[in-house]
């Protein structure tokens, strides 16, 4: 299958390994991966600040660039923006736009639910605690949020991680509490954000994990920043990087 890789702007610039790993995993599952270097950002930071017209400008670019393609991204949050919020920005969306939106997937979601992949050939002999990032979980519906009683089972990411050779999958107390990143919230309400992050880091560390993983480097950026400040605790590694490990 031909897949257009959508690498979030901050992953492109700060965490390139996650993008490369995502491509590698997709290729390992038989996809032909392309990357259009004209892509930048989905517009989520602007949308989350209420600046709809600024977000719409980037959303329009994004939809035009990925028009007619099957798009896969190593970020539940950015995919959540495309699938869940592009219709709120005052854009005029045609049928092809709507198809493009519907054909945008988070990496593990795509592998498990679209390609039917049950297991990837990966080895990662470590204890890993999973951060169930909010947007993938509650907006894209990947996995079962702890608030719900109608279980949809584990998320695609956790299903793939469970099959990784040597990996011990751990879930922290309060299985899916927010890490506290929240985009500009992380700086405008820095005290609350940081406290949430410290609490989450402590919960992950308490599992005895060697790594924290998740589908979003945005949560990771925050949690890993807290870890660096505290000088202790498990580092963050993107789920794509684990799935690409041999």
């Amino acid at each position: 299958m031909d897949v257009a890789l959508f690498v979030p702007c901050y992953v492109d610039q700060l965490y390139p390994r996650a993008g490369l790993a995502a491509a590698e995993v997709l290729e390992g599952c038989g996809c032909r991966v392309s990357f259009d270097a004209r892509q930048t950002c989905c517009g989520q930071p602007m949308a989350n600040c209420g600046c709809a017209s600024d977000a719409a400008r980037l959303a329009r670019r994004h939809l035009d660039l990925f028009r007619g393609k099957v798009t896969v991204s190593p970020s539940g949050s950015c995919v959540g923006m495309v699938r869940g919020h592009y219709q709120e920005l005052g854009l005029i969306l045609d049928d092809e736009d709507r198809r493009t939106i519907a054909n945008t997937f988070e990496l593990c979601e795509f592998l498990v639910l679209k390609m039917g992949v049950e297991r990837v050939a990966a080895r990662f002999p470590h204890k890993v605690s999973v951060q169930r990032s909010c947007h993938g979980l509650r907006e894209l519906g990947l996995g079962t949020p702890s608030e719900r009683t109608d279980g949809r089972g584990p998320s695609p990411a956790e299903r793939l991680l469970a099959g990784v050779d040597g990996l011990t999958l751990l879930v922290p107390e309060r299985a899916d509490e927010c890490c506290g990143f929240g985009g500009t919230f992380a700086v405008t309400e820095d005290e609350v954000s940081a406290r949430m992050g410290r609490d989450r880091c402590a919960a992950h560390a308490a599992t005895g994990a060697e790594f924290i993983t998740g589908s979003d480097w945005s949560c990771g950026m925050h949690l890993d920043g807290i870890r660096r400040k505290q000088g202790a605790g498990p580092p963050f590694i993107h789920v794509a990087e684990i799935l690409a490990s041999r």
Binding site: C134, E139, P145, E147, C178, G180, F181
Partner: peptide, 9 residues
């Protein structure tokens, strides 16, 4: 409205 991380819980 900005006093939220929009976690959706």
């Amino acid at each position: 409205p900005f006093a939220s991380s929009l976690c959706g819980s």
